[in-house]
Computed example of a mutant assay.
Amino acid sequence: MTATSFYPVMMSREVATAATFYREALDFEVTFDSGWYISLRRGDFELAIVDHDHGTVPDGFRVPVRGLILNLEVDDVDAVHEALTGRGFVPVSPLRDEDFGQRHFIVEAPDGVLLDVIQPIPPTGEYADAYAGGSLAG
Rank of each mutant, 00 (worst) to 15 (best):
E126M: 12
D116P: 00
R96F: 00
G60P: 11
P110S: 01
G112S: 03
Y37S: 12
L68V: 13
G138Y: 09
V65Q: 07
L72Y: 10
Q119G: 09
A130H: 09
I118H: 00
H81I: 00
Y22P: 03
R62P: 09
Y127S: 09
V90Q: 07
R66H: 15
S93C: 01
V30I: 13
V9D: 08
S5K: 13
G86A: 01
W36M: 06
D59I: 10
V92Y: 01
D129M: 10
I121G: 04
R13I: 05
P110V: 06
P58F: 07
A130G: 04
V90I: 07
V57S: 10
P123M: 07
P94M: 02
A19S: 13
E29I: 02
D116H: 07
G86D: 00
A79W: 03
Y131N: 09
T124R: 10
H104C: 05
V65N: 05
E126A: 11
S39Q: 15
I69Y: 12
A18R: 03
R66P: 04
R66K: 15
V77Y: 04
F45W: 14
Y7G: 15
A3N: 10
T2F: 12
V15D: 09
A25E: 00
I118N: 08
Y131R: 04
F28W: 08
T31G: 12
P123V: 04
V9G: 08
R103W: 00
P94T: 00
T4L: 14
V113N: 06
S34M: 14
L40C: 10
E46V: 10
E29L: 10
E108K: 06
F21Y: 09
E126N: 05
F89L: 00
M1H: 13
R13H: 04
R62M: 10
V74Y: 05
P64Y: 06
V9S: 12
S93N: 03
A16K: 12
T17N: 07
A130Q: 13
S93L: 01
D78L: 02
R66M: 12
V65M: 11
V30H: 11
S39Y: 09
P58H: 12
E108I: 03
A3E: 14
S5D: 14
V65A: 15
V74C: 06
G43N: 08
I49E: 08
E73K: 13
V57L: 10
G35D: 06
A18E: 08
G86T: 02
F105V: 05
V50S: 14
V92R: 02
Y7I: 07
E46P: 05
V90K: 02
V92W: 00
A3K: 11
S5G: 15
T17V: 11
L70V: 15
L40A: 13
F105I: 04
P110D: 01
V113M: 11
A79P: 06
D75G: 12
L26F: 12
E73H: 12
S5P: 06
G86Q: 01
I106Y: 03
S5F: 15
I118T: 13
G101L: 10
D51N: 08
G133C: 03
T17H: 07
P110G: 01
E46Y: 14
H104T: 07
P94H: 01
T124D: 08
A48Y: 11
F61Y: 15
V80K: 03
D51T: 04
E82K: 05
A137D: 08
G88M: 03
S135W: 08
Q102V: 02
I49A: 03
G112R: 01
S5I: 14
D97L: 02
F105C: 03
E14M: 05
R96K: 06
G55K: 11
A79Q: 06
